[in-house]
Design a protein around this nucleic acid. Structure first.
Lengths: 340, 340
DNA sequence: AAATGATATGCAAACGTTTGCTTATTCATA
DNA sequence: TATGAATAAGCAAACGTTTGCATATCATTT
């Protein structure tokens, strides 16, 4: 069986005790250590290839140096980037990151959160499932540090939240389309029961309305969160409403399938149809178009969440709850043409 | 400060001892527990919201239920998928996954491996940096379970390895291009010092050679591992050798930048130039082309690696070292045209 | 010569589990 | 009525650290 070198092993070889070894290796200043002893300890530790057990030391109240992060689907580049950016921050501060894919399944989320408590992680970053509020109750009870990212925690007042201005995304995008002369607009979205994401659709509707464009000119179809669904929804939208001059994709995963449909139908972008996308998957620069899109600055989101969590961990309960809402920015590509 | 409920707390409320509580909660069969006691313990645990500390229990020889995974760049979809697939397997078996981005930096890799030993993970999956052989020495010394994925560990004989048949990728791809009538071929690759990845280039050269195509007709340029480099290399290749009818991209990250260059130059695929790619980033289906590519079955790779590691963990030292080399398969899109 | 302070290190308890050993009660069998 | 299973549960050690407390040797100072 696997056997790790312990403090006692090192102490025996160095001719001293575990306590002294601990002091030396942790480089504590509050105890006198002779140069001779220090040398012998370091040599022994080196020779025996001692590696401390964080698990054991955390029993004595030390930090476990572990963070958990839960995302619904981390092959979605939006979340991949959030994870990458936060990992970067955490590693820099000596924390390891446990990553968990919830697949937006509340039971799975619940099980994962329980396991993370078992691991006694120092904090958790999560994008909650639709049952997140219920599932995170235990976290609050045990006083777990937590930062919610992207989606909110409905019904909860005091918590840390880092997110995109979803309403803003929808509004800015629609306003832009209208400014380019588009008056017949299709919007494709996700029929999720997550309130905050519905803000995108709401913003589109309100932007259309506030520009005195008849609401009948706006056609909204919504469906599942996948490329295949994007394909299907695009087909449906164009079949039912061939008069639209632009499709506004609220979710990049669906947009990928949609763009595939347009290609299959030999519909040229932007000659035959303009396309606007919320999000910045890497493929927006591939193909024959650099797509016009709304960038959510995913990396910054991850970084902010990580720093906020570290703040909590380091300063304890003293810091006030915050909601950090990041605006998105419109990046012009070549996929939206003037339509006057 | 954060305080978790302990076995003792539960025992006190249930009017028994920590030992009994431990037996009840772990549902051990080797000890008689009265129904009365069991009920009281479960009730107390419920009321106090007890969550066991894996850290403490691992001190007594139990598994930490933690796995570490190191990849050079997990926003690269190839690695994202490996992580996703293995996470799926591990979660199913009750393990959590610590994810680490090495950025292909050997020092970082070394530091991360050390931290993972500190965490006493049960096993490690890694794609080694160029210094992997040296860095993993400590792992072998402490008897850490390990599966190497994608790249080999040069100079090491006995280890578990799951990888793509890189030579096969290059060979099959080139053979396909030649079969479609291409005789002037450009290959763009990564100038890495990782031997196994050079096999792709070598295969291309040998396939060209074995088809009696003059080697002067093959133009190879190599550079850094990024989309920007792909852009630059494509430009360089086409400027210096405008006679090629196809570009074979050995790495999908570079291909993304390359395709962007082709678009910027208004070079039509496949009318003006054919394109073949190793790997399956999601964008191969976007744009005006579904790209012809060599699929490495990334998910399967991750799954195999995870299962292999679990095998080691569960069966101890008994299982023999294995090298699992997966073939890739050619997936025809529309980006390579006949060139007779 | 005794007291002080600086230097150096050992001892042992504690963290939260798990588990081998022990003890105690009950109940059926010889 | 002993005897020994079967049932039930407590005690305490151990895992690998950290750290408060105690001890011991010096070199100074009074």
């Amino acid at each position: 069986m696997k056997q790790y070198t312990t403090l006692k092993d090192v102490a025996k070889l160095a001719g001293t005790t575990a306590a002294t070894v601990s002091y030396v290796l942790n480089d504590k200043q509050d105890r006198y250590i002779s140069e001779e002893t220090r040398r012998k300890v370091l040599e022994a530790a080196e020779k025996l290839e001692y590696v401390k057990s964080i698990g054991a030391s955390s029993l004595k109240g030390k930090s476990r140096k572990l963070i958990g992060i839960l995302v619904p689907q981390f092959e979605n580049q939006f979340f991949t980037r959030i994870v990458v950016a936060s990992e970067e921050v955490f590693v820099k501060h000596g924390y390891d990151l446990i990553i968990c894919n919830t697949w937006d399944n509340p039971e799975r989320e619940k099980a994962i959160l329980n396991r993370l408590i078992q691991q006694r992680v120092d904090g958790i970053i999560l994008t909650p499932t639709r049952n997140g509020t219920e599932n995170t109750k235990l976290l609050r009870k045990v006083g777990m540090n937590m930062v919610v990212v992207d989606r909110p925690l409905p019904g909860v007042k005091d918590y840390f939240w880092v997110a995109t201005n979803n309403y803003g995304c929808g509004y800015i995008g629609t306003q832009y389309l209208i400014s380019k002369g588009h008056t017949h607009i299709g919007y494709i979205g996700w029929n999720s029961d997550i309130q905050d994401l519905q803000a995108r659709r709401r913003a589109v509707m309100e932007a259309v309305d506030s520009n005195s464009i008849p609401i009948e000119n706006l056609h909204i179809v919504e469906g599942g969160f996948s490329a295949d669904e994007g394909y299907r929804l695009t087909q449906k939208l164009l079949t039912e409403h061939p008069d639209i001059s632009v499709i506004f994709y609220g979710f990049n995963v669906q947009a990928l399938g949609g763009v595939k449909y347009l290609h299959d139908q030999n519909i040229q972008i932007p000659k035959d149809l303009s396309v606007l996308i919320i999000g910045s998957p890497e493929w927006i620069m591939a193909g024959n178009n650099c797509f016009t899109h709304l960038d959510m600055n995913d990396l910054e989101l991850g970084k902010k969440a990580a720093n906020l969590l570290l703040d909590q961990i380091q300063k304890g309960e003293e810091i006030p709850f915050q909601h950090i809402i990041q605006d998105c920015s419109l990046v012009e590509g070549t996929s939206v043409r003037d339509n006057f």
